[in-house]
């Protein structure tokens, strides 16, 4: 069975970068797939990979990660775009969706800019389950 846990941006909003990464990784280490509203900062994404590597052991093999970006900001121009960029810098990026799954559960996340395809692995039956998440 695959468990998905939706994490609203408000749940990580007030946390430090370390706190955000810790919270998300703790969920993933419970063999759950995290669906985070919005996205982490670029530096936090790199830090997430770094912390993941530090914690790899015989039970935890790492993560699969994918971010679907929103096209909303890209469509804006001029002052509206400036406001949106400023808002993102101040309160974080709530647009888009971040998917983080344990490598023991998620075999692969195939992606293109508009959709992601999540391939999970069933350890006992060795059966692949395909799930599609479309924007």
């Amino acid at each position: 069975m695959v468990t998905l846990q939706l994490v609203p941006y408000s749940e990580i909003e007030l946390l430090s970068s370390v706190g955000r990464i810790r919270k998300l990784l703790n969920i993933v280490k419970e063999d759950k797939i995290v669906l985070l509203q919005g996205r982490l900062k670029k530096e936090e994404e790199a830090e997430l990979i770094k912390v993941t590597m530090e914690e790899i052991n015989k039970d935890f093999k790492g993560i699969e990660l994918a971010v679907i970006e929103s096209n909303i900001n890209k469509k804006l121009t001029g002052m509206s775009r400036f406001k949106a960029t400023l808002a993102t810098a101040l309160i974080g990026d709530r647009q888009g969706l971040t998917v983080i799954g344990p490598a023991s559960v998620v075999k692969e996340i195939k992606r293109d800019p508009s959709k992601i395809e999540l391939l999970t692995k069933e350890v006992r039956k060795k059966k692949k389950i395909r799930k599609k998440i479309k924007r």
Binding site: K42, E43, E45, A46, I49, A66, I109, P113
Partner: peptide, 14 residues
Amino acid sequence: YTQVNITIIGNLAA
């Protein structure tokens, strides 16, 4: 189009 590539390039851009 993998997240590793996007994350590396995004970090360099930042």
